[in-house]
């Protein structure tokens, strides 16, 4: 896989504050990576360095093989970026705004209609942005990031404030670009919604990378217990099971013990009315890695 973004030993200080500390990170073509962390964990600083808007205090940042702060326009035109909170000029129309950004990337106006159609804004293209809903504004933001089929897409908190249906649509568009070979970096603190969307998860805490891997990697590294809940048909008694208010029972089992437990439970399937297995969520994983860091 081709490396599109590479950070090596990157540290960024603002005065006495260390925003990013000794960070190594590589992103590859066709990969969707979730960058996860609290507000202030260093996500936006890291993105700014990838875009060449801030220079690292030490270490090196490479974007498509070049230093982004001095790279030629042709390199920087291959990056799409959606900032965390952006408000376009309310009096201009969606098409005018997108046209402005297209010209900055050296694209002609024929690229506008497909771009507006892709995010579902073609019907509202000639209305002032002041009349747009929050979701439409965010889709316009995505449209500008997608202009010119960038090889690297950096989306900072792209779905904050969107309803679930829009969110799904948003991720569908983004994953289509990833399958075309673009690198997608999703910065977020809304973890659960990234489940199943990202190939890899990078967890940042206080400017440091504390975890990096596929969700499965992280799950097995964390060895978080799986929770199993059953609703028995008749009486049920076993050691280590909690009785819940609705009459069902719950227990937690280490990842390796899950299948033997299930085999035991299902040996007499008629005794169980219902069975629910809850794998640790991204939120649990995140909390686990933060706890481990604090310890």
């Amino acid at each position: 896989m081709m490396k599109t973004v590479a950070l090596e030993g990157v540290t960024k200080r603002y005065g006495s504050v260390v925003a990013v500390r000794d960070l190594d990170l590589a992103l590859h073509a066709g990969e969707t990576v979730a960058l996860v962390g609290h507000n202030g964990a260093g996500k936006t600083t890291q993105i700014k360095m990838m875009l060449g808007l801030a220079r690292p205090t030490s270490g090196s940042v490479r974007l498509l093989g070049f230093d982004p702060s001095t790279a030629a326009s042709s390199i920087r035109a291959q990056v799409g970026y959606l900032p965390e909170s952006v408000s376009f000029h309310l009096a201009l129309t969606g098409r005018e705004t997108l046209g402005f950004y297209a010209r900055l990337k050296g694209l002609d106006s024929r690229s506008l209609d497909p771009a507006l159609a892709e995010v579902g804004l073609i019907g509202a293209a000639d209305r002032a942005i002041g009349t747009y809903s929050k979701g439409m504004r965010q889709r316009l933001g995505l449209a500008q990031a997608l202009l010119g089929h960038p090889r690297v897409l950096i989306l900072d908190e792209p779905t904050s404030g969107l309803d679930p249906a829009l969110r799904r649509e948003f991720y569908a568009i983004v994953s289509a670009r990833a399958s075309e070979g673009a690198t997608v970096l999703l910065a977020s603190h809304a973890l659960t919604e990234l489940e199943g969307r990202a190939h890899r998860v990078v967890i940042l805490n206080q400017g440091q990378k504390i975890a990096d891997g596929t969700l499965d990697d992280l799950r097995s590294a964390a060895r978080l217990p799986v929770s199993v809940r059953i609703r028995p048909v008749g009486r049920f008694a076993a050691i280590g099971w909690r009785r819940l208010a609705d009459g069902s029972f719950e227990t937690e089992v280490a990842a390796g013990g899950k299948l033997p437990l299930l085999a035991w439970l299902l040996s007499d399937a008629s005794a169980i009315a219902d069975l629910t297995i809850t794998e640790p969520t991204l939120d649990d994983l995140y909390a686990h890695f933060l706890r481990r860091e604090a310890a």
Partner: peptide, 12 residues
């Protein structure tokens, strides 16, 4: 408004 960051992320 947050547009400066976006503008400078363009080849400008």
């Amino acid at each position: 408004r947050g547009t400066l960051l976006l503008l400078l992320a363009y080849p400008v």
